[in-house]
Structure formats: structure tokens, C-alpha cells
Computed example of a mutant assay.
Amino acid sequence: MTITAEHETTTAGAAWPLPGITRAQAQQLFEALAAALGQGVGAGPADRPADAPALMTAAPAPASVSSSSGEAAVDMEAAELVERVRPAAPVVAIMGPLRVIGAAGDAPVARSTGTVSQAQTQRCAALAAFLVLYPGASAEAYTAAFWPGERADGPAAAASRNKLSGQLRRYLGQDGEGRPFFPRVGADGYRLHEAVTTDWQTFCGLVGSEPSRASTPALVAALRLVRGAPFEHARPRNIGWADDLHRVMVERITAAAFELGARAEGAGCVGHRQLAARVARTVDPSCEAAWRASVAAEAAAGAREEVARLVEGLYAYLGAVEAEPEAETTELVARLRAQGYRMGAGWEGLAGS
């Protein structure tokens, strides 16, 4: 699903609570997103992620974000957009630390301590993500993802699958009608209840495949769902199956962030510039353009200490990877220093001073 951006506006009447967006445009957004939520995750081959949209709750906007009436209106639209389609089923968060939000059952417990096992809970979350994104996975695909090198038809692999599946089934629990969110495996392979989603599917439902065609409220709502780098802090043994997905996520999130950043700069929306740059830098710290965008956004906000902190952070990163700054970075730092910004001593050489 792609939400197109139509940049028309209308004067809000007393009965219409969303200034800055037409009734027809809002209706299109809400109907499309509600339909996406209702259809859940579509079936797909076990060796490819299902590209179906779904929605969850976005993180609240920082108090410093809304710097203009236009920006505040977009923030309100973004919040309304997500609030209207909040799912009732568990959501697997993969845009940041890996975890399950809204699990209805009990997390795995370590036998030795009788307390929740964080390691097994993380492995359950990884399995949940895998099964949502690869619905109908075969025993072979399941085994290869979590026990690479094991024979899928061997007794050890079967026992391992049964144990992990049982833990996830108890963890996710049941819906209001008593149906398990992780049904027993059947002829159609391993799959979760269609209502279980990931925040990544939410993001894709909001942004679509072309960020330039998404509405600004949809971009804002989508980027507020990003809580860190994809699969942040996850153990490699839990997400070996996600290498290609990780690359796609970084590329699409970064593209959406730069799209919002460009629009926000043109509209003078400093808060959205900060949001976009922060997300791009978080998901891809090797992207020097994202660091520059953050520095420029904070300078536009008058956050002099944050500018200095970011410049020092970029200097430290470049030093760690033994890389020279790009010409655009050197030029930006030189301009800021000419404007009276104080940089750390380490930047003297890098800025060409």
C-alpha cells in the first residue's frame, strides 16, 4: 500500500479536527490504513518476507519538536493517523531493540533461577519476527534460521523447534476469543495469527515503497516508530536470517528520513528536521550525510551545545574507522566555526584550520 502525498490544504470547519489536510485526503489515509490492519499479514513463500502493511502506536513527539503552527498541525495529523489504527494483537518491534509489545502470555522462565530468562525471551521475539515476516515457514526454513547446520529432519532439530515454539506460544498467549496467537504447525507451515504484526510492517504501510509519494504526516508518524537501529543489541545467533532484511530496512528508513528532512527544511519545520536527521544517523551511523543533517538541524534550532556534541561524535567515529571527513563535512564545520560555534580541538586538523 502506498499513501500518496497531495499537498492541498483546506480551511478547517468546526466539525473537522485536522487543519492542514483535506477531508478527502484524510479519508483516503484512514480507510487505506484500516483496510491494511484488517487484512493482517498476507501469505507468502517461506523464503521471502511478506510485504503487508500493519500499524501500531507511535512514540510521542518530544516537547521540542513543534516549532511552528504548521509543524504542530502535521504532528497532530500524524498522531491521529496512528491512533485510529492501533492494533489489539501483539506487535514485534524490530526497529530498535528486539522485543514483543503486548504479549498476552508468560515470558520464558529460567529453571535455575525461577525468573524470566531474558535470553530466551529475546529468542522468542526473534522467532516471532521471523514467522511474521516469513509466514508459512517450513521446518527446513525454521531450522536453518535458528540452528544453521542442523538436519531439519533429525530428532535434535525437532526437539529444538518444539521447545522454542512452545515457549513462544505461551509467551504470545491468546486473543479475546481464546485463539492462540501462535497456532500449532499445520500443512501450511509455521505461522502466527494474522493479527500479529511488526513495527516494520507499520512503517511500510505508512511510507510505501516510494517515500517521495507519502504524505508528510505519514512520514512523521513512521519515523517516530523508529526507536533505534534495526534489531539493535540482538544476538547474532537470533537474527542470522535477517541480514538482507536489515539492509533493506536501513535503506528505506534512511530514504524516508532524508525525504522528510528536505521537506522540513523547505517549510522551516526545525523539529521535523531534527527528527529526520536523528533517525537517519541512528539507523546508519556510517552515513556522514546523516551526521551533517543532524548538525545543520541542531544549528537551525540554536542548540549550540548539541552541535558541538554531534561534531565531536562524528570526529570520534571517523577516528575509530580511520576515515577522513568528506568535503561537505569540512565545509559545514568551517562555516559553523566562522559563525562562532566552538569545536573540539580534535576538529582543528579535520576542518583544515
Rank of each mutant, 00 (worst) to 15 (best):
T2R: 15
T10L: 06
T11G: 12
A12D: 11
A12P: 10
G13L: 13
A14F: 15
A15N: 09
W16S: 05
P17M: 08
Q27V: 08
F30Y: 10
F30R: 00
E31W: 11
G38H: 12
Q39K: 11
G40L: 06
D47P: 04
D51L: 14
T57Y: 03
V65F: 05
S66I: 06
S68I: 08
E71V: 07
A72V: 03
E77S: 11
P87H: 06
A89M: 04
I94S: 03
G96F: 06
R99H: 15
I101G: 00
I101W: 13
A107M: 02
A110D: 15
Q118V: 14
Q122L: 06
A139C: 04
A144K: 07
A144L: 11
A145K: 07
F146C: 10
W147E: 04
G149C: 05
E150A: 15
A152M: 04
A157Y: 04
A159R: 12
A159H: 04
A159W: 01
R161C: 03
L164Y: 02
R169Q: 11
L172P: 00
G178W: 09
F182H: 03
G186N: 12
Y190D: 01
R191Y: 03
T198R: 05
D199E: 12
W200M: 08
W200F: 14
F203P: 06
F203N: 01
E210N: 09
A214Y: 02
A214G: 06
P217D: 08
A221H: 07
R224K: 09
A234F: 09
P236F: 10
P236K: 08
I239S: 02
A242G: 13
D243C: 03
L245Y: 02
H246E: 11
E251C: 04
I253R: 01
G261S: 05
A262R: 10
A264V: 04
E265L: 07
G266V: 04
G266L: 07
G266I: 05
G271K: 00
A277Q: 02
R278E: 11
C287G: 01
E288C: 04
E288A: 10
W291E: 02
A293I: 02
A293Q: 03
S294M: 10
V295D: 00
A308H: 08
R309F: 13
V311A: 11
E312T: 12
E312I: 03
Y315K: 03
A316C: 06
L318H: 10
A320E: 13
P325C: 11
A327I: 14
T330D: 04
R337S: 09
R337G: 05
Q339A: 15
G340S: 09
G340A: 11
G346T: 08
G346F: 06
A351E: 03
